[in-house]
Design a protein around this nucleic acid. Structure first.
Lengths: 328, 328
DNA sequence: CTAGTAAATGAAAACGGTTTTATTATTTTT
DNA sequence: AAAAATAATAAAACCGTTTTCATTTACTAG
């Protein structure tokens, strides 16, 4: 392996001079600079980051801790994280939280000397860990409780927009199949749902607000409760796309046409939502953008620009497809 | 930060002795060993991997290069990679292949001195890069060409099993909507499809073999071609779940009941396949296992146990759901 | 008791960079 | 033209480990 000393020898200068050329840490005359750069180029020299890290006590690496790596939310978050870090010459080290009782993130991140940690989690309540003494932030898809610095979607506004979309289509009897109400996201969305009604001067029918458990089956069950009576809602807003697919299944089995008889709007914009029949209108969870923002926050903290993440909420985007139409 | 020297000083031994206790690289008397371990424990000492890496020229880190980080195939592959690496005390550094013309994986992986590289790709033909001088392997979901060491699914057997499943349900007129035939996966699957027919002593009707482009629309279009004539297949096997969803859409629009009038079987077992109506019978792409295997290969190469990956094919698993039934 | 051997430990160099300090060369000022 | 200031480069220390090699200690056998 060619080292900075080899380069120095060939160029006829001291290693420190090569370092200064490489990093611009001191004035180097134009002449020597050119010679050194030529030698570096010719030898295709790549400085060893490990050695640099050892001296600088900085690895230009951010650790990403996740609950599960797959699933609908974490991968695009990581995509955003990786993208932002790449743009800023950092790299991304990933690891999963382990269930084992003596698991310790230190083994990975502390010993590997990462400069900061992003906890990217889709569903987990709270990761149980000893807080590190380096910058860290959470980025949650769905969460129950909020602790410390975090990035989350703006669930309130997302639900508000979804409901408003239905109201603007002349739906005045709207069912809502929410997620469990002890989740932060569910509370926010309920408030968004209600705020839209208030703004439009509509009454809210408590009996049309149901609670599912995020699963498809619960969407099915709650759809049954909402739709089997004589007075039916003309539209249903569900807390996620999976529950919406359950509603769709109920409709399919019971001859309820979507969107002619019933408009449905989901939440998440999971990839499959455009493959459902009909294609699902939904609210996009801005996971990619949240990941980018989390990375941005960590780097800003590292540079000392900010102390704590402002409690960032990222706006969701309404995706209008074929499962909603004007109420007639 | 407490170093090995601090520990040595407190324990009253030389740094080298602490190192030997830590790594078991030399005999240390029971007495000193206990003292040193106690001091390490008390001070919650964590050796600095960076320094270790510098000396050993080994980072215990594997780089994972992907085309896209999200999508249906890469995340579970990475899940499998990370899991295996974790079990073997390695960590996982990720990066995306960049389109920019002067992008160089070296910036990330070479300078960070990873010990090996796994190229985890879902769809890409061939990643254009300068081959590294460290162990590497490809792991492909779908691929066109095969070069170098790779891990892929056993597409032949997957297609064989899927077709056999239909044949065993008394379907003798089976349509096949394959992916583009210049893809390795498509060729293999076509052969599996035909092999199953041969084994069952059935004729193959060339007009029932169609070529889609992996997209949902092409599934729809090919379904139309297959189903609008008078002599229809009683079952359709599609090259992926997305095209299967296109077939489903066609059926839904044209009053063809699934599975009563037509059985459908997909490929991939993407998460959404169990949310389709009816739940889709499909062939699982063993992405997680492929990731694990890729990681296992890299570590085996590092240990010098193997030179090149045997051209590994991982078996797929038939997932029987509600979109297939006995032909009557 | 002592020589010889094996086991345990310590000292120091090494890994490949950066960074501080020192030295030399070049300008500028008086 | 000498002194002072500034620019450019070199030398050496340092980051926290591992590893080689030398030395000390403990044990065994004659």
């Amino acid at each position: 392996m060619t080292t900075i000393r080899d380069i120095a020898k060939i160029a006829g200068v001291a290693p420190s001079t090569v370092s200064h050329v490489l990093n611009g840490t001191a004035r180097v005359s134009k002449k020597t600079k050119e010679i050194v750069e030529k030698v570096i180029e010719e030898n295709n020299f790549q400085p060893n980051m490990i050695a640099k890290s050892l001296k600088q006590k900085k690895t230009y690496t951010i650790g990403v801790l996740t609950d599960h790596f797959s699933g609908p939310f974490v991968p695009p978050m990581v995509d955003g994280i990786e993208q932002f870090l790449y743009e800023n010459n950092y790299s991304t080290l990933i690891a999963k939280v382990r269930e084992e009782k003596n698991w310790d993130y230190k083994e990975l991140f502390k010993s590997k000397q990462v400069d900061g940690i992003i906890v990217a989690s889709s569903w987990v309540r709270e990761i149980d860990w000893e807080k590190p003494d380096i910058p860290y932030t959470y980025v949650y898809g769905y969460t129950q409780d909020l602790h410390g610095d975090y990035i989350i979607p703006n669930d309130f506004k997302g639900a508000f927009d979804a409901t408003m979309h239905l109201i603007n289509l002349d739906h005045h009897k709207i069912g809502f199949i929410n997620g469990p109400i002890d989740w932060h996201a569910s509370i926010e969305r309920l408030q968004g749902f209600m705020a839209a009604h208030r703004k439009a001067g509509l009454n809210i029918h408590p009996k049309w607000i149901k609670t599912g458990n995020w699963g498809g089956d619960s969407g099915y069950k709650m759809a049954k409760l909402l739709l089997e009576g004589k007075e039916r809602p003309t539209a249903i807003f569900t807390g996620n796309d999976v529950m919406a697919s359950g509603v769709l299944l109920y409709c399919s089995k019971n001859g309820i046409r979507v969107p002619e008889d019933l408009s449905i709007i989901g939440f998440d914009n999971q990839p499959f939502s455009s493959l459902l029949i009909p294609k699902l209108t939904t609210v996009e969870l801005p996971t990619y953008e949240m990941g980018r923002l989390a990375a941005r926050n960590i780097l800003a903290k590292l540079e000392g620009k900010i102390k704590t993440t402002e409690n960032n909420k990222v706006d969701c985007k309404l995706i209008i497809r074929d499962s909603t139409m004007r109420n007639t």
